[in-house]
Design a protein around this nucleic acid. Sequence first.
RNA 1: GGUCAGUUCGUCUAGGGGUUAGGACACAAGGUUUUCAUCCUUGCAACAGGGGUUCGAUUCCCCUACUGACUACCA
Length: 505
Amino acid sequence: MRPVRVRFAPSPTGPLHIGGVRTALYNYLFAKQHQGKLLLRIEDTDSTRFVANAEQYIIDAFQWLGIPFDEGVHIPNEEGISYRQSERKTLYKKYAQELLQKKLAYIAFDTPEEIEVKKHEVANFQYDASTRHQMKNSMTLTDSEVQTLINKGEQYVIRVRIEPGEDINIQDLICGNVVINTSILDDKVLWKSSDQLPTYHLANVVDDHLMNISHVIRGSEWLPSTPLHILLYRYLSWKDTMPQFAHLPLLLKPEGNGKLSKRDGDRLGFPVFPLEWHDPLTKEIISGYREKGYFPEALINFLALLGWNPGTEQELFSLDELILHFSLDRVSKSGAKFDFEKAKWFNHKYLQTISNAELADKYLRILQSKNIVSSKDYVEKVVAIIKERANFVEDFWDTSAFFFTRPLTYDETVIKKRWKENTPEQLQIIIGLLQSIQPYNALKAHDAIMQYITDNSLNTAQIMNCLRLCLVGYAKGPDLFTIIELLGVNESVERINIAINKIKI
RNA sequence: GGUCAGUUCGUCUAGGGGUUAGGACACAAGGUUUUCAUCCUUGCAACAGGGGUUCGAUUCCCCUACUGACUACCA
């Protein structure tokens, strides 16, 4: 079997879409599984849609995701090969010429406007074998007429010549056998004189051939144009080394129907891009998974299972496990709706596996931005008891702010329910208990307070909730005795005193 | 309009001629807890419709419906 070489070939027209991330991921998994190579090629043959930051964004995104490429636009190589199509433009013309010589392509002078007119005149007009004789091209003009027009500086395109009536068989690794008849194909433009650039179809086939691509794994929107690509491989006498195709199902909107699009994310409140995108033109900032607090491993795990499954009940996979288990024949044929809740669950699972030290470092940065000074040791202890209730590091503050700042208000409903006339004096006794325990820790505090409650036949829930109210400000959160320990005796006592003074019934 | 493809719980999916159609997310209930979460347990919930083939179809075939992609000098 020939060495596996696959590519991810985005067009730098904007931020990398999450569907593109999945396509790249599947390419990566497939490549690694077969000890193959993954290439990053930039398909920037449409100068009109070029967006300045897009290429760097794509590179940064994969850097963050931890998907490395073996070759690509961002990786220097000794041969001086460019992986950017705009820099390979001279290459493509040669192959267009070859097709011209073989009479498998022809020159056409019809302007876009003229074709537009034709489309209005003729219903379902298509530039193909049935109509090309009515048009202005090298099949209707003589060689000298063509030459004259070119000499005059007339712009032209090179169109592939497709003859009708042939069934083209696509042996797709995911979709199976798909047959498309050439009669429905049109004579696609391969190359344009105006900018000296090829269109996607020519550039893609030429590059895949020259780069020795063994498998083309791409979105299923390409399936309909695959017959053209197959024809091109044949026309250029590359049929023997034609890559195998695998067309991935689309990612769909979470609600309703249709392809997941950029606007869905903002409308529904979740990102559709890996990283935050700063639009150079509109100055708009669109959120990304990284900024929302997703771990790249969690996003990858989630994406991997969206359209593929191992056939077992395992759902949590490391990247290495994905490489081991991934296979194209277990990729589903139907589109998958994007389930944001499940993505959060994956992140929750990953969060639990990360060390307290590492999480503390992340949390420390958030605390810093809130001008809170704290020791790493303390933050680590806080993280240890709150991480299980969080999906994101960004959730930490909401559930643990009281570890760093004193409560400013006290939950009214808790006061109403739990705060009695004699509560202050009970709390005074608890202050005494806290000040007397040696050593000062959660266990000792627990024993002392529970002893006090049982000795005096008090209502546990009432005492505990009032105490929590003093320390936290509301009636939820982690184990109260752990809070007492972490806060320390002085802070705990201070907070109780403040609360006794502030809370009036 | 044409071509191609797809359709199993709300969502992601497993399964496949005979199954109580399995799992996960979400949701609900119960347990645990001083509280809120977590966690555990349980529950809820699906083969698009119609024809065949067959002893038997969700599974195979056909039709219909629906959905999607494509139908650019965009990728």
